[in-house]
Design a protein around this nucleic acid. Structure first.
Lengths: 340, 340
DNA sequence: TTTTTTTACTAAAAGGTTTTAGTTTTCTTT
DNA sequence: AAAGAAAACTAAAACCTTTTAGTAAAAAAA
């Protein structure tokens, strides 16, 4: 059966659409609609099971009440947990979220920004990919609210929410060193996103300041495409007798998990005497028999702040002042599942 | 700067909106628009950086090109992985996905279905919660395409995609028994969703058929609200000397992980000689030192099928025949990270 | 009694698109 | 030369809201 519209209600009551719209939007009082009429409108609305058409409303008001979320991969727990928080917070404002995964692909990000724009999203929350500065700048130029999360571009004056990557990474590696490890291998994504650079620098400096002579061969890069293959190859190198690392630092949980999972059956044993450390406290290490140093990020705060900022921008018509740059705290966690 | 519309292009060229719309929608040929005009339309469209307003289009065509996904919790890896697949498949059809989490809450589900309806989603993919039969029936009655995933209602003639929960659960528990375990504790969600019942029956029958005398105390229920607390309490009972289980069966990965994580420090050691088994192969057990039996579900197939079915219903105007009931295969995985 | 104010309501436009049912001009036929 | 067909385009309605700028009738003030 056909959905009913405002004019169905209006016709039934013999009143104007205007009146019905006003009543249903709670503007009855200020427009001095009579109590009696108000009552009848609600009755008929209920009777016809009226549901406002948000497309029509959005078209008229210019607000879709939708925000676009673009992350690398929504099935990555780090992002899905942030996504969940964003969903919850947005819904408090009557907003819904379209989730999109960019796979760290510049072209895909560009397309996603475009199609979300066509859908008239009221704001973007983006964990940006290398090379999408231009696209994001265009959003800013057209005054569409944007908040970047997890990463940002130093050359772009945007809102962002992140952690102090340099210090976090420094602390992780420091902990590893305190535990006695001396030859710390690492795997970085091959990207020029600044957060990755910071994580690398923290790692390097922690080593240097502990008097560890960094071996260039300890630092490996992997590509987003063919990630699994890429990881296997570099890990093989790191655990080879020539390089012979006694521990690892991974700048993301994803990288850590995939690296360990990617090891050949024969190589897995090495973890019994190898130190593992990474960002993001992945679930995979919650019961690992080898000791792990992880970094918990403030997922809920990230989601919270992102919505706070985006809503402030959406709901204030006048330009919002300077961009908000939020750096949140992260925490080191030394995990070990004690068998026996 | 203001977004440009079809009529901006039309004005600029001195032609009608109709013509511009036709050209941009690739209907130029069938409406014999001249080559020259076509060219100019595209030029101006590009010059003005035209982006179609999908709200307006949706209003006019009655298609929002959006599908609503409702799951228990999008931060649960099982669902976020399905969500990712659905996102990818939907995008092949030009569709986007609004992700929503119901927290297994009937009222919330109801609200979500309503608001997604107001947004004119073209179809629903839902992992339904107990008590939402009525709401889903209403969707069916108003001919809105719906596919249920992971669970379904026996009393409702809907499309659904699931696995054979009884057999899966039977196989898991059987494997546990083959490994020599004899006192298998279990924790079920307190719900009357049929998938949970099936999983319970599979467990019971596997025990019975192996000649194991089921102790009622082995079967515990936990509530969705206060889940963590509820779990702690029941697990405490299961590992108590009176009940003294030598192994566990958990009907979802979430339950398994939370149960083990919820154990007090002092109790954790028990897992060194305890068999653990569960649905969903959670990442948390990928490096667990204790042996684990898990069940991998065909995530990608679930997402694929869901979109296949929903698209078929969306794109065929005439009634689609009988509901599609899809039962997919699942696989047992015996995991053990070999230390040494 | 006339004017002003208040009360309760409405007509119509606007937002951007698609689509139906044309129209006008030029070209072919007969 | 007239009729018919083809080519190239258009006017206007429709989708459903919200909002602006009212109006008509009743009540209050002068």
């Amino acid at each position: 059966m056909k959905r009913s519209s405002i004019s169905d209600i209006a016709k039934r009551l013999g009143v104007s659409n205007t009146l019905v719209s006003m009543v249903l939007n709670g503007k009855a009082k200020e427009n001095r609609i009579s109590e009696e009429t108000i009552k009848r409108v609600f009755e008929v609305a209920k009777e016809l099971n009226y549901q406002p058409n948000q497309l029509a409303r959005g078209l008229r008001t210019g607000k879709s009440k939708t925000i676009g979320l673009i992350v690398a991969d929504i099935s990555n727990p780090f992002f899905s947990r942030i996504g969940r928080k964003i969903e919850d917070e947005a819904s408090k404002y009557g907003y819904h979220v379209i989730f999109c995964s960019s796979d760290e692909n510049t072209q895909k990000t560009k397309t996603l920004i475009n199609v979300l724009n066509e859908r008239q999203v009221d704001g973007f929350i983006i964990s940006p990919t290398a090379g999408s500065q231009q696209q994001i700048k265009e959003l800013l130029d057209s005054d569409i609210p944007v908040v970047l999360i997890d990463r940002y571009f130093t050359e772009l004056e945007t809102n962002y929410i992140a952690i102090d990557n340099y210090t976090s990474s420094y602390k992780i590696v420091k902990s590893l060193i305190v535990q006695g490890y001396k030859r710390i291998g690492s795997l970085f994504f091959n990207t020029d996103m600044v957060h990755m650079k910071h994580r690398m620098n923290g790692y390097k400096d922690a080593c240097k300041e502990a008097g560890i002579q960094l071996d260039e061969r300890w630092i490996r890069n992997v590509d987003f495409e063919n990630l699994e293959e890429s990881i296997k190859k570099e890990m093989k190198a790191l655990i080879s007798p020539e390089i012979d690392c006694d521990s690892f630092f991974f700048p993301t949980g994803e990288l850590a998990v995939k690296s360990l999972e990617g090891l050949a059956e024969d190589d897995i044993h090495i973890f019994n005497h190898t130190g593992i450390s990474c960002f993001d406290d992945p679930e995979a290490f919650h019961f690992s028999p080898f000791p792990v140093i992880t970094l918990t990020q403030p997922i809920n705060e990230i989601g919270n702040k992102a919505i706070d900022i985006i809503m402030e921008e959406i709901e204030s018509e006048n330009e919002v002042d300077s961009p908000r740059k939020v750096i949140l705290d992260s925490h080191i966690l030394e995990r070990r599942y004690e068998s026996h």
